[in-house]
Nucleic acid binder design. Sequence first.
DNA 1: TGGCCTCATAGGCTCGCCTTATGCCGTTGT
DNA 2: ACAACGGCATAAGGCGAGCCTATGAGGCCA
Lengths: 308, 308
Amino acid sequence: MPLSPRVSDLATFDLLLSVARLGSVGAAARAHDVTQPAASARLSHLERKLGLRLLDRSARGSRLTEHGALVADWARAAVDAAAAMDAGLRSLRVGAHSRLRVAASLTVAEYLLPHWLVALQAAAPDIAVALVAGNSDDVARAVLDDEVELGFVEGPQVPAGLTSRRVARDELTVIVAPGHPWARRRSGITPAELAATPLVSRERGSGTRRHLERAVGSATDVAVAPPLLELPSTTAIKTAVAEGVAPAVLSSLAVAADLAARTVVAVPVRDLDLTRDLRMVHRRGRRLIGPALELSAIAHRGVRARPR
Amino acid sequence: MPLSPRVSDLATFDLLLSVARLGSVGAAARAHDVTQPAASARLSHLERKLGLRLLDRSARGSRLTEHGALVADWARAAVDAAAAMDAGLRSLRVGAHSRLRVAASLTVAEYLLPHWLVALQAAAPDIAVALVAGNSDDVARAVLDDEVELGFVEGPQVPAGLTSRRVARDELTVIVAPGHPWARRRSGITPAELAATPLVSRERGSGTRRHLERAVGSATDVAVAPPLLELPSTTAIKTAVAEGVAPAVLSSLAVAADLAARTVVAVPVRDLDLTRDLRMVHRRGRRLIGPALELSAIAHRGVRARPR
DNA sequence: TGGCCTCATAGGCTCGCCTTATGCCGTTGT
DNA sequence: ACAACGGCATAAGGCGAGCCTATGAGGCCA
């Protein structure tokens, strides 16, 4: 089910947001480095395509209509997500002249870091960040070897030689397809049930998988069953779960959107603590300065500001 | 700051997601109704533009590289947001032949309903939904007058003649600019402080504003100060707050993304319950059937599946 | 009433993207 | 081992979307 062409042109929605912010089509056009007629035409075209009047045009400028305000709020969510992706993409380009090098475990790199990078760019636009994604061991090694100034890892153990600080708390979540028997279990499943069930899983060595094995191991005698299927990406796992292949255990950050859209369902687990800390690490004894300090502050403040 | 052209072409990222899901460029091309060379060229072009290899091409198909998997996860967030917007947009077109008519208060229409509509479309693709957005009074009236089958309202009071069911719980959140004095108040502010401070606010009559006045009124003798500034949209309010005009009180659903990006900061309020229920309503005595029942089930299940 | 701001329209051009046709290469099956 | 198949890349041609410049129309303010 491909995306409708109605919404694929994010640049025009971004233009609409600029009109809302700046109060006139011409000003928005200048902000986007196009001429006023081009902007005007694009917006008219959008209104035609959607079958909605979005703007009240007057001699003093343009304001959103009621529909326009609603559409603008929807669009902002999409544009923000795209901006986060863009911040991430910039950091992946091999940064020969990067001023800040960062390593992050997958969960952090996927769901948290892009937003921090957006905030960092707003605070200090000239900082180029280089990002390396890997598992927590890779990250720790990169920090110790001085390949990066800052690292982000999952899990309880902090490698020797590193100073750590919690930047977020995450919770592993059991997900199943909406039709799966566990989906009706309002009281949850037991750790033993979870351990006995072959899951769709990341490859051995992933932080999520290791954390699950440790948590289940300390709550029950049953060893975690070998996976039914190993897949290389979170996305692939969610797709497999949604198709009913088997349950999976993923970070709550990874499944939030899918839960909201009901492609998969969360199953509570009784008497098992699946929370884990996401930590920022840097070399012990080395003070953070400049860009690294800035990013560290942004990430840390995220702790309190996290949505419910 | 307009969106970078790197990420504005969502359709190509959607194509990348299809390649990941289907395992080959050709299959993704068919799913998107273009020829294989067109898809191949677009993906190559994207890789050039990003400076990253995203796909491992082989004679058996194409798989994501490590970078590709990360980019795909970022892209999925943006594409999902766009899909939600699309579902919302479809429902705004005046639905002469719509099979399900819905009215929703602004908070629900902005942040919840689009995702429910995506799920509904997945479950029943042929249902056309017509959405009317308004305040809770408008919604109640529309349901009572039989203009819509289903309504979604905010706040505690359920109008007579309507059956209600809670579908989500929301919390009003005090937000300030990152540099505002309150931003450092880890222990929070008092209800009296909040009441005494002129806020940036929606116009009188908005559900959020009324709920705040009621909650503060029952916790303190001080009446809520008149707003410093009234603005017509949530977006405008957040912008004003971020620019340091004054604090504001908005739904947690409205500010989650902004908190994560640190454009604004949440301030706890001591000894004041700012939670409120978001309710689905329909005419008393009338059983929900067909599409309305389906949407009602999706919305209700959302209660348990909500991200933390 | 003139100047200035807003947005809309018209004409001409460029360039991006798609389609069809074809070739190459690795895998698979007999 | 060889042939058939599936998957991806390249080439050439055509169409259309979107941009720019130039200009017009309408409201607001001095």
